[in-house]
Amino acid sequence: MALLEWMLGVRSSYFFQIRNDAYNLFSERSIRTVREIHKMGHHIGLHVHLGMLESLNQMEDYILHDVELMEKMIKIPIDRFSYHRPTREALQLKLKIKGLINTYDDLFFEFRESDWADLKIKYIADSRHQWKYGYPDEDTIIKHPKIQLLTHPDEWTINGYDSESNFQILQHEKKAAFRTTIKSECDHY
């Protein structure tokens, strides 16, 4: 996706988690990939997983800690963050951290409990492999002067598989990568 956008002259923000079990952002392979995306002119940010946050009062320190760690490990500047499956309370907080862009700030996102018909900023996301808030087709893009488009490129395939088939393919890829890692790390046995 990053390469396609680069070829089209589009620059995006790519967000990565450091608190998950699906991938190791700090592996050599992952760091290399993130640096390649950054070299294409895309921005790199922290995808904040709130699962280990004990209190919303600690959110700023929690995010700053993760951003600092990410910068030290990847060795590129991190100037933005986006929540992973944000709670209503996190969105209502409208957290502002000096030097960091919050993708859910009022500049990029309009929070409402309901009645999304006349939003100033149209939110479109493929979360959980579904376009629940609208589809990014030409009519939608023309109709809304400002859009936040959230996609998960790792969850889609060229063949357009459904969620179950797509995740089976991702599981197969992860198993193959794990076997390669074990073979390279344990070939002396």
Rank of each mutant, 00 (worst) to 15 (best):
S13Q: 09
G51T: 11
P77M: 04
G51F: 11
R80K: 06
H42F: 03
M40W: 00
R112Y: 04
S114I: 10
F178T: 08
L91Q: 00
S163F: 15
I78S: 04
K75A: 15
E5N: 15
G99T: 00
F178D: 12
G41I: 04
R32S: 14
M1Q: 12
I182A: 02
L150E: 04
L170F: 04
S12M: 09
I63C: 04
N159F: 11
W156E: 10
I63R: 00
I101L: 05
L53H: 07
I37F: 03
P86L: 04
I37H: 05
D115T: 06
E28A: 15
S55H: 05
T151M: 13
K143C: 04
L8H: 14
D162T: 07
S55R: 08
K96Q: 11
R19T: 14
E113L: 11
Q92M: 12
G160E: 02
L91S: 02
A90P: 06
S114P: 07
S30E: 10
A2K: 08
A117V: 09
R11K: 14
H84V: 06
P86H: 00
I169T: 02
I169R: 02
W6A: 15
S127G: 13
E110Y: 03
F167R: 10
H47P: 13
H144G: 06
W156H: 06
Q92T: 10
D21K: 13
A90E: 08
D162P: 06
Q58N: 07
I141C: 08
Q171H: 09
N159L: 15
I142D: 15
G160Y: 01
F108M: 09
K174G: 08
K96A: 13
M52C: 09
G41L: 03
F178I: 04
I78K: 03
F167I: 01
K175W: 05
N57D: 09
A117T: 10
E110R: 00
T157E: 09
F109T: 05
H49N: 15
Y14S: 03
Y135M: 08
K122H: 10
M59S: 04
E36I: 06
Q130T: 11
H152I: 02
Q171T: 09
H188T: 12
S163P: 03
V34I: 04
